[in-house]
Every structure is written in C-alpha cells, then in structure tokens.
Amino acid sequence: MSLISENLQAVHQAIAQAAQRFGRNPTDIALLAVSKTFPAEDVLSAWQAGQGAFGENYVQEAVDKIARVQQLSQAQEFGANTSSAAIEWHFIGPIQSNKTRLIAENFAWVHSIERDKIAHRLSEQRPDHLPALNVCLQVNISGEASKSGVAPEQCLELARYVQSLPRLRLRGLMAVPEASEDEAQQRRAFAALASLSQRLVAAGISVDTLSMGMSGDLAAAVAEGSTMVRIGSAIFGKRNYAV
C-alpha cells in the first residue's frame, strides 16, 4: 500500500469520526483531494487508491497536469484499464477573465465564482459536447479584505444570475473562513454559510452543495453540514510551492 493510499484511508477515517460525532452520514460528505503543486503521478496514485475528484488552484498547472494524467493513464505502469476520464477535475482557485476558456473546457466543477462577468464567460465558453459546468459561488463569509468571494448580502442576486445561464449548473456555496484554531469560531463561520444556503433554497434556488472544510477545520465543517471537504497536504504531503 502506498503512502498516499494510507493517507487517504486516514482522511476518510477522520471524516467518518466527525460524522459520527455530529450525527451525520459519512457517505453524504464527499472528499475533494486538493492536488495543486503535486505531480500527475501522485494524482494517479490517489486515483488507483479509489479517489475520484481532484481540486486545482492554478489554471496552467492544472491544464498541463490533466494532459499528463491522460498520457500516464495510457502507460503500461499504470495498467491498461486506467482511464483519466474517470477523474473529476474541480477548479477551486481565483479566476482571471483571460483563463475562463481553459477552465470551461477542462473542468467538471468550479467552486470559486464571485462575479457575474466570470459566470457569463464560463457559460459562453463551455463546449456544447460537455455537460453543464457544475458551479459553486465563493462567499467571503468572514468579511476579510484579503479574501476572495461575493459578500453574503449579494449572494442571492448572483445566484439568480448564475441560475439563468444555460451552460452552468448552480450547485451551492463555497467558503474559506478566517483561520482559527477555535472550533466554536470555526462553526460560527460555517453555520453562516449553511444559513445562507438555506436562504437561497427559501428563495426558490435549488442548491445541494456546501463546499467547506479543510484539514484544520474539517470537524467544524462537518458539524455545520458540509457536503464536500477539500483536503490536500494530509493526502499528498508537504507542498513544494517552488514547483
């Protein structure tokens, strides 16, 4: 068993323990393996260990990696039955206008929509042969000046606009709250995002995803209803940002 496989088991165990603690069904909480800065070989190792969804923050790195995974998946050392088509790619980083086409063409999910202009471009540039792009609105739930995301009070307006776009499928909300080691503070931020999601539903907007929770606040996110946690270094190890 590879180290990545062992790490994946440990992460799934942590999710299951948090779910048991807070009365959740662990099967309702998806794991997104954040593979930014890690090589395609690590993605395939995780895929062979049963992980299907991978998150990337940097567009060009991701596009190159997707191509490399495709190449490696056809190589003998990864087995004749390995297919990169089974991998679900999620874009979770900031989006520049000049990168929307690459995102629209290469990803199944986008978690970081915060502007109507970006949403419009993604819808317009999504290839017709692909299914609608699954998207989440990124909410600046803690109101930090340094953080990306739509303000909570503007979320409903943006959600209505995104819902109207033909090549996007609005799935839910994403947030990266202010860092804290206090579980009560973590829970307050996630509870605010969950409440915002409920307000969207009350307004007639169908959403089913709360993308929230990372290694340091996984339990708090699960407690407040996360349906997708984003975990990176606990699976792949320490990041090398010089790559």
Rank of each mutant, 00 (worst) to 15 (best):
M1H: 08
L3P: 00
L3T: 13
L8C: 12
Q9V: 13
Q9K: 14
A10K: 15
H12A: 04
Q13G: 10
Q13M: 08
A16C: 09
Q17H: 05
F22L: 07
F22H: 15
G23H: 07
N25M: 05
D28Q: 14
A30N: 08
L31A: 03
L31Y: 09
A33R: 02
S35H: 01
K36I: 13
T37K: 02
A40R: 00
V43Q: 00
A49R: 04
Q51D: 09
G52K: 13
G55R: 06
E56K: 01
N57S: 14
V59S: 00
A62M: 07
A62R: 05
D64A: 13
V69C: 15
Q70C: 04
Q70D: 15
Q71H: 14
S73Q: 08
S73D: 06
A75K: 15
Q76E: 15
A80C: 10
S83A: 15
A85F: 02
A86N: 02
W89P: 05
H90D: 05
H90E: 04
F91H: 04
G93M: 12
K99V: 03
R101A: 10
L102P: 01
I103M: 07
A104P: 10
E105K: 09
A108F: 05
W109C: 04
W109R: 04
H111E: 14
E114A: 15
K117E: 14
K117W: 12
K117S: 15
K117G: 09
R121S: 11
L122Q: 10
S123W: 12
Q125M: 13
R126I: 13
R126M: 11
D128A: 15
A132D: 06
N134I: 05
V135G: 06
C136V: 11
I141N: 00
S142I: 11
A145R: 11
A145T: 15
P152D: 10
P152N: 08
C155I: 03
L156S: 01
A159E: 06
V162D: 04
V162C: 13
S164P: 03
L165W: 11
R167L: 08
L168C: 06
L170F: 07
R171L: 09
R171N: 08
L173A: 05
L173H: 06
E178Q: 14
A179L: 08
S180M: 07
E181C: 07
E181I: 11
D182Y: 05
Q186E: 12
Q186S: 08
A189F: 12
A192G: 06
S195Y: 06
L196F: 07
Q198A: 14
L200D: 02
A202H: 10
G204C: 10
I205Y: 13
S206Y: 06
V207H: 05
V207N: 11
D208Q: 01
D208M: 06
T209W: 12
S211I: 12
M212V: 03
G213P: 11
G216F: 09
L218P: 02
L218N: 02
A221E: 07
A223Y: 02
A223F: 05
E224T: 14
T227F: 03
M228K: 09
I235W: 04
I235S: 01
I235M: 04
I235T: 06
G237W: 00
K238W: 02
K238V: 03
A242V: 01
A242S: 15
V243T: 05
